[in-house]
């Protein structure tokens, strides 16, 4: 019994310590936001890497998800003679939930892993130490530009994902399910509210922050060697995905609870 309690205690302490370390990391990252020097070149590079180069994966994910969603809603709706709601449910489903969450998860897979692996490799090859000896703060030079870029560019990616997802539903709806094109678009536009769009973009910003932060955090915490880099990469993606899903629930609750 005492062993069990000791194990629970050790796990709890470990969890609290991890939360504390992460909170300190967030605090230190944000503290550099208003303190020069700034690195606009690194920020611009991160914007392109995270934003522009993620467009294909975001677009394809959203397109196929929107199409599949239209098919599912049509099939499910036909049981209640409610096939006509396909445009509205595709729109609300993509904008409120699937757009931000799927884009967030794809970014966690593509960007978080890449940031974690890059920074972890820099750490094990002493490049982080080299930065310090060259009077450059690693948090300011590596972490802040990536976190800031992801936070700013993710709403744009989510917005694009939402539009492409709705377009996927439109293609399936009009080409496969026999919907009238103009009516489909009108129903979509009429049904979406400003709050739907705002919630989608806010979710994007939060998920972008989480995705980049987890990559940087686990990269900086990496152990030595190839195994350390691998572990940091894996942990960063798992943590980012779980935190994105948890944050999604909290934000949905905040925006849409009756």
């Amino acid at each position: 019994m005492s062993r069990l309690l000791a194990a629970i205690g050790a796990t709890t302490l470990g969890l609290l310590a991890a939360i504390g370390r992460l909170a300190l990391f967030v605090g230190e990252t944000l503290s550099h936001l208003f303190r020069p020097p700034f690195y606009p070149r690194e920020f611009g590079h991160a914007l392109i890497q995270i934003g522009y180069f993620s467009l294909p994966v975001v677009g394809l994910t959203a397109l196929f998800t929107g199409g599949a969603l239209a098919l599912q809603i049509y099939a499910g709706g036909s049981r209640f003679d409610a096939q006509a709601v396909v445009p509205q449910i595709v729109a609300i489903g993509m904008v409120r939930e699937l757009g931000p969450v799927l884009v967030g998860l794809m970014i966690a897979a593509r960007v978080t892993s890449s940031i974690a692996a890059e920074i972890a490799t820099m750490k094990v090859t002493e490049q982080i130490d080299a930065l310090v000896t060259l009077s450059t703060h690693p948090m300011k030079y590596l972490t802040l530009p990536r976190v800031l870029a992801a936070t700013l560019v993710m709403p744009v990616l989510v917005g694009i994902g939402d539009i492409i997802g709705i377009f996927g539903g439109y293609l399936v709806g009009t080409e496969r399910l026999g919907f009238n094109a103009a009516a489909y678009l009108k129903n979509t536009a009429d049904f979406l509210t400003r709050l739907d769009i705002i919630s989608s973009l806010v979710k994007g910003a939060v998920f972008g922050f989480i995705a980049a932060l987890m990559g940087c955090y686990y990269g900086m915490q990496s152990d030595r060697g190839a195994m350390g880099v691998g572990r940091a990469t894996k942990s960063s993606v798992v943590a980012a995905a779980i935190l994105i899903l948890a944050a999604n629930f909290i934000l949905t609750e905040a925006f849409f609870s009756a």
Binding site: T121, M122, T125, E126, Q127, D129, A130, T133
Partner: peptide, 11 residues
């Protein structure tokens, strides 16, 4: 100035 063991050049 510091020369690191593995060079530590920025890739």
């Amino acid at each position: 100035g510091m020369l690191f063991q593995g060079g530590a050049l920025f890739d």
